[in-house]
Simulated assay, not measured.
Amino acid sequence: MQFEGVLKKMRTELGDTVNYYMVFNGDFLHLNQVLDRELNLEFLKHECLNCHLDRPIFRQGFCKNCFFEIPSAGDWIMKPELSRAHLDEEDRDLAYEKKVQLQPHIVYLANSSTIKVGVTRKSQVPTRWIDQGAHEALAIVEAPNRYLAGITEVALKDHIGDKTNWRKMLTNSVVDEDLPTHRDRLMAYIPDEARDYVLREAQETHIHFPVLRYPEKVRSLNLGKTPNYRGRLKGIKGQYLIFEDGTVFNVRSNEGLVVGLDIN
């Protein structure tokens, strides 16, 4: 089987085991079906996800010009507490910012490597947790907008982490946590503005990833330095492909690269 197209983050579907799909120019590949087969990845060129030109990718799949101009790459994306649409204040495009920011957002606890706090749109649950490689997650606050979720996350970050150790996540060096106990401990630090939105009865979500074998050590594949790579696919977790030799490939961080993909 041969595929060619620009990389975008893998689409996912929660089931007994997560289903992963790569979408290429009107075609798609169900990656779970090619576990334990050899994949050949070849870098062909760049294609900005916004302007679609062959320009070096700067961040988030966008060329440098687009990254600093388009509304979907504003600082509030990575820092929800900077959201201002609820005040009718524009960053780059107020209509777009209202559409995204003024909808329910979830503050959650997730366990990918160690327990962490995060924010996502309610419509992105459980996709966000899958993308982070979390094997367990718990919603703790449902805020009516991105700003309230953001300031809640900031307040909680003083008492719990907000980063994922991707190496621990990919070697499965993780332990189960009692997320409701952590939620209860953190309640004292919820900002007053968000206290009415606490979720006290939410249930944990448990996620199982399609991994045949976890590596003991991992090394990241950089297609810019190694434009052609061949390996046997042993698993998919988060937005990573895991290969038999310990090589891992982060699809999300390589958005905007046009690749050829052969499956043997």
Rank of each mutant, 00 (worst) to 15 (best):
N40Y: 12
L156G: 04
R121G: 15
V211R: 01
D131A: 07
L261Q: 04
P191S: 10
Y108T: 09
N111F: 06
D36I: 09
L94V: 06
V18D: 00
N40T: 15
E244Y: 08
A188P: 08
Y21K: 12
E177Y: 14
M22N: 02
Q101F: 00
C48G: 03
Y214P: 01
Y214H: 09
R252I: 06
G150E: 01
G15M: 09
L49Y: 07
K99G: 11
I70W: 00
L212G: 08
A202G: 07
H135P: 07
L49D: 06
N65F: 14
L29N: 00
L241C: 01
Y108M: 11
L233K: 02
W166T: 04
C66M: 05
Y197G: 00
N222E: 10
D36Q: 14
T164W: 02
L170C: 06
Y197E: 00
G15R: 08
G61P: 04
N264T: 12
D158M: 13
Q60E: 15
G5E: 05
G246D: 03
Y229Q: 06
T127F: 10
A134M: 06
Y20N: 03
I130R: 02
L39D: 00
E142N: 13
L39I: 02
G26N: 06
K157R: 13
K8V: 11
S220Q: 12
H159E: 10
P180K: 00
E204A: 10
D131T: 05
R55K: 14
R121N: 13
F62K: 05
V248Y: 00
R185A: 13
A149K: 02
Q2C: 13
P56V: 05
N172T: 09
T164E: 04
L7P: 01
D158I: 11
Q103E: 12
L41V: 03
Y21S: 11
F58I: 07
D16T: 13
D178A: 01
N65H: 14
N145P: 01
L109A: 04
G231P: 05
D192T: 14
A149S: 06
M78K: 15
N228S: 15
G74L: 01
T226N: 14
D54P: 03
Q124I: 11
D27A: 15
S173Y: 12
N222F: 06
G260F: 06
T226L: 12
F62C: 04
G61T: 08
I236H: 00
K237G: 02
V154L: 15
I263M: 01
D75G: 09
L44G: 03
R37Q: 15
T205P: 04
